[in-house]
Amino acid sequence: MELAITILLFLALVSCAIAIALVRNLFAVVMLSGVVSLLAALLFIVMDAVDVAFTEAAVGAGISSVLMLGTIALTARNEKVPPRYSLVPLAVVSLTGMVLIYGTLDMPNFGDKNAPVQTHVGPSYIERTPKEIKVPNFVTGVLASYRGYDTLGEVTVVFTAGLGVILLLGGLGKRRKRRRESN
């Protein structure tokens, strides 16, 4: 049953990706990429990664779609048809895909109990979290406490990204101009 659901979700994912490549209407492309994110979130749920699924659904399907729509409003509604088709991009994409698939061949199987992630620090987190932190959600325990530095780094990245957008596109320049006009 689980295998059937996984295969179905992957088929839907691939058909959405092909549709994104074919469709010229960018509004439809944004909606389809939202569908891709939702399907990916469902796949994460099948793999029991609820926290990741949650983030994927909120960020991928929610915010990115809105921001993409905002970008479309700034640019154009339809993709331009290229004057002639070239095989180079297809070759590059296929080659990259093959290299990525080749890379996964060395990875342990999904759910393998001998995988490095299950034998290295994982068991120690599972053993220590109920004793030292006493939160039922181990993901929170690891992210917020054991790996607090990493999360601080991630928040700094988000902060820097926001700062960049505010400085490049945001209202600071406008506010300065308004102040200059009022002086």
């Binding site: 915010i63 809105v66 921001l67 905002g70 970008t71 700034l74 932190i133 939160v135 929170t140 325990g141 917020a144 406490s145 607090g148 999360t151 601080l152 928040v155 988000v158 902060f159 990204a161 926001g162 957008v165 505010i166 490049l168 596109l169 945001g170 209202g171």
Partner: peptide, 24 residues
């Protein structure tokens, strides 16, 4: 500690998302 830092994460992510939306 976890409540405090999660609140910090939440506030920053909220504000960054909203300011990106404002900017776009």
């Amino acid at each position: 500690g976890i409540i405090a830092i999660e609140l910090g994460v939440g506030i920053t992510v909220f504000a960054v998302m909203l300011s990106i939306y404002y900017a776009f």
